[in-house]
Structure formats: structure tokens, C-alpha cells
């Protein structure tokens, strides 16, 4: 077995108040040394078979890990970067054997597609875009949306992937007159794309026509809200936001996520649910991920909290393991696992 492999770790200690529903199944020990920044679970074709894999990103190295039978991980490829560090992994749904990464310092300067085939014939990076990139998201149907430029010349572009990872086509969307912070697909409306802006507006595009359909202001109680999930139901648009700037002294507790309903016809919105920490728990949202009805967040306290968005309850609180605060968390795109990373490079895989 290669040296760069993982071990099966003991279950981390959970206090009696927060056993939650998280069960540790595997630990991936990343020996790469540099600062870990992100993790993602993807499908990769290895020896002709689609295999669940984990992608880890450190500042200058992105690694591909293949699952072995015993919940251990074998590193099968690394992509190295020398000039610009990696900021985030950008998984693209409906695409296997390809992952995108955003590189930059404080802001994204480049987006690259990373490819590798187990025959070793196709290991490469493809530069997809460069410049002053503000936001990027992988979309269903092999697409990637990004916004770039300054306010005066902001460009919102959807790229479709060819099989070799290159660009098959590019389409421009009408830019709003304010900087876009995040994108989200709208479940239930395949051709709709949602964006949140720096002015606390939500914008909706028609991905077929490129039209900017509407701009809707949301409550100013929380600035710079980030959209993690959006779905259309019964004529309303439901949006799950996180509030990195929320104060911990809110009377209702500490809202980490919020579900709001918006009527796109009138632009009127109403709060549906606040997802707060249990009483006695402190912490603000640092970063997080939402998949289906589950939301996970790394908190300023160093813990990870998981909410069931339908029940509205915090379902699990995961304390730091070995006194190492959590630094990032992602739901697996290949199964119902939670991937949690620490600053020392360890990635823990939990079954929920």
C-alpha cells in the first residue's frame, strides 16, 4: 500500500449533550503539510468504473483519493500549483472525472478544471477563466457559472463542459447593477438561477434566455447573506441563507441559517424559520454547506452544528477533535456523509 494512506480512527469524544446522529466512519490523514482549504466528494472513473472519491485541497496541492474496501483512502493523483494558491474546490454535478478549483489570494483570480485518467494519459489542468472573479458555482447539466469584472463591466457567464474538460460553449447572462456574492440553482426550476448581491438583493436569471428576471430585496437585519439552497414551491421561492455577520446577542439566540419565502411576483418576502444554536451554545457561522434538508456549519466556537431544515432542530453538535477546531465542512455529493476538516490537514468522514 502507498505510504500516503489513512487510518481508521477512534470515535471522537462527544459530550452527553450533543451525541447527535453523526458516526465517524473514516479518517483521511493528509500528509501534504500545507494549509488545508477545502474538501469535496466526487465520482471519478477509475479502471472503467465510476468510483466514489474524495478531493482535498491544500494551498498549493489538490489531491484525489480513492475509497478502498475498508473505508481507507488511497491517494491516486495530485495537481500542483506554484504561483496562485487554491481558494476552494468547485464540484460540477453531472460530470465525473473532472473537478474545478478556484485559485487566488483574497479574491478568485483563476478557475481551472482538473482532469486525470487512471491510465495516466490524461492528467492535466485546463484554465477556464481568469481575472477578477467574484463568484463561481458548478451547475447541473455540466455547466459552470461565474461572475467577473468590476461593477461597471461585470460579466456573468455560463460555461458548458466538453468531455475533455474544455469549454463546449459559453453564454452570457444579463448582469445586475451590483456585485454578485453567490449563486444557487433553484430546485424545481431547472432553467432558473439565483444570485445574492452585496446590496442584500436576490436576483433571478433565466438560464435559457440569459434574461435577468427580477431583483428582490431581502430583510436588512442580516448583511451579506449567503444563499446555500433555493427551491420553488407553490408559487413561492424558498431560500436558505447563512448569516456570517449575525450578532451572537440576538434575542432569539444565534441564527446561523435562515429560511425565507419570497413571492417573485411581488418581491415581498417573509422569514419562515431561524436555525439557531441550542441554548447555552455560543458561536457564529464561519462556513457551511446545505444538502437536501440538512445544513451543516462550522462555528466560531470551533464546533460543527447540523440542522434538519424541515424539523428546524439542531440535530448534532460536533466538538473539536483532539483540541483541533474544525475549519471546513461539506456534505458528500456521492452519499449521505459529512466531510469535516481540521487545520492540521485531517479530514473526518461521518455517516449521518
Amino acid at each position: 500500500r502507498p505510504l500516503e494512506q489513512t487510518e481508521i480512527a477512534d470515535l471522537p469524544a462527544c459530550d452527553s449533550l450533543s451525541p447527535g446522529n453523526l458516526q465517524l466512519v473514516s479518517k483521511l490523514k493528509n500528509p501534504s503539510g500545507s494549509c488545508p482549504v477545502d474538501v469535496s466528494a466526487v465520482w471519478w472513473e477509475i479502471a472503467g468504473l465510476k468510483t466514489p472519491c474524495i478531493i482535498t485541497a491544500c494551498e498549493y496541492v489538490v489531491s484525489l483519493w480513492k475509497a478502498l474496501d475498508t473505508w481507507q483512502w488511497e491517494k491516486i493523483n495530485s495537481w500542483h500549483f506554484t504561483e496562485v494558491p487554491v481558494l476552494q474546490i468547485v464540484p460540477v454535478p453531472d460530470v465525473s472525472s473532472l473537478v474545478c478549483v478556484a485559485l487566488g489570494n483574497l479574491e478568485i483570480r483563476e478557475i481551472r478544471a482538473l482532469l486525470y485518467s487512471s491510465d495516466g494519459a490524461h492528467e492535466k489542468q485546463v484554465l477556464l477563466g481568469s481575472g477578477n472573479i467574484k463568484a463561481v458555482l458548478g451547475l447541473t447539466k455540466r455547466r459552470l457559472v461565474s461572475s467577473s469584472g468590476t461593477l461597471c463591466d461585470q460579466q456573468v457567464e455560463v460555461m458548458t463542459f466538453a468531455e475533455d474538460g474544455g469549454s463546449k460553449g459559453r453564454q452570457l447572462l444579463m448582469p445586475p447593477e451590483e456585485t454578485i456574492l453567490t449563486f444557487a440553482e433553484v430546485q424545481g426550476l431547472q432553467e432558473a438561477l439565483l444570485g445574492t448581491t452585496i446590496m442584500n438583493n436576490i436576483v433571478i436569471w433565466n438560464l435559457n434566455s440569459g434574461q435577468l428576471l427580477t431583483k428582490m430585496h431581502i430583510d436588512d437585519s442580516y448583511q451579506a447573506s449567503v444563499c446555500h439552497k433555493a427551491y420553488s414551491d407553490m408559487g413561492l421561492l424558498f431560500v436558505v441563507l447563512s448569516h456570517p455577520c449575525a450578532k451572537e446577542s440576538e434575542p432569539l439566540g444565534s441564527p446561523v441559517f435562515q429560511l425565507i419565502a419570497i413571492n417573485p411576483m411581488t418581491s415581498l418576502s417573509a422569514g419562515v424559520m431561524l436555525y439557531c444554536l441550542p441554548q447555552g451554545q455560543a458561536g457564529r457561522f464561519l462556513e457551511g454547506d446545505v444538502k437536501e434538508n440538512l445544513a451543516a456549519a462550522v462555528l466560531t466556537s470551533g464546533k460543527i452544528a447540523v440542522w434538519d431544515l424541515l424539523l428546524g432542530h439542531c440535530m448534532a453538535l460536533l466538538p473539536p477533535v483532539s483540541d483541533q477546531s474544525w475549519s471546513f465542512v461539506k456534505w458528500s455529493g456521492t452519499d449521505s456523509h459529512l466531510l469535516a476538516g481540521q487545520k492540521d490537514g485531517n479530514i473526518f468522514v461521518y455517516r449521518y
Binding site: M174, L189, E191, A192, I204, N206, S209, Q211, L212, L213, T214, S232, M234, G235, L236, L237, A261, I262, N263, P264, M265, T266, L268, S269, A270, G271, V272
Partner: peptide
Amino acid sequence: CNEADLGPISLNWFKELSSEAQP
């Protein structure tokens, strides 16, 4: 939330907004 607070709702809001928006 109270639907009355959000004004008249259309199940086809995406289609309607697409037909009204600038091409």
C-alpha cells in the same frame, strides 16, 4: 409565514417574469 403578507401568488411566476423581462 402568512401568504397574505406576500401578495398575489402565481404558480407560473418564472414563465410570467420571463415573458415580461427584457430580452
